[in-house]
Amino acid sequence: MRLEPAARADREGAPCPALDEPVAHPGPADRPFPTNSNAAPAARDVHAARRHRELQQWHARLRLERQLHDGAALRISALALQLGLFQHRVPPGEPELRDAVGTLQDELATALQELRDVAAKIYPPLLDQAGLGPALRNLVERLDAPVRVTAGPERFGAAAEGAVYFALADALGVDAGALPDEVRVTRESDHLVVVVSGAGVGLGELIRDRAFPLGGSVTGPDVRAAEPHGVGTIVVRIPCE
């Protein structure tokens, strides 16, 4: 999913209030694309610019999700309460009116659920609030997938966490038959490291697509070693923010 317009708005707009550190911090490891058009950009400048753009997109997603929650969703929840008060004040002789208010409340609950579903596709609130461990456990629980998730409470930044989460969510959503056995999340200095065992080639590709723009590296699965099932172990390393 690409969110180009939002990412552009992000660049011009206010800084993301949730971030302890700014998204862009030009330095040796993360320099924006050179503005001097005469100079051919070095490969690492291109990579840094790509990572910078990708970080901004993830933060734009996060901000959209929070906007849905803090704006529309809270307003609708409060409206449901006001309807409850209204229902309480309906005179006893008006059962139809009472029921009609109840139906309206149910409609509001359905609208809220639809908002939650949309928000979860933009950026899962549980991933934002509680991190990769709880979000991945929730994902396998909902899909009823026998995947073991091992993760501590560490946080790695919205982009790295989002990349890993969505790669696995895509893989599980596409082909539930090709589930990995285990996902293990750890930190190695300033990198998020995810080891996925029992993973197929397809999952490797999905993870590469998400990890490379963030300057991440992916090894495996070396399926030759794991014939005949065609599965192996993937190791993903993504720099934290």
Partner: peptide, 16 residues
């Protein structure tokens, strides 16, 4: 912390 929801819930609690 949401003022709208807090006020709504307060009124509903009192009505109950």
């Amino acid at each position: 912390d949401g003022a709208l929801f807090r006020e709504g819930l307060l009124m509903l609690l009192q009505a109950a």
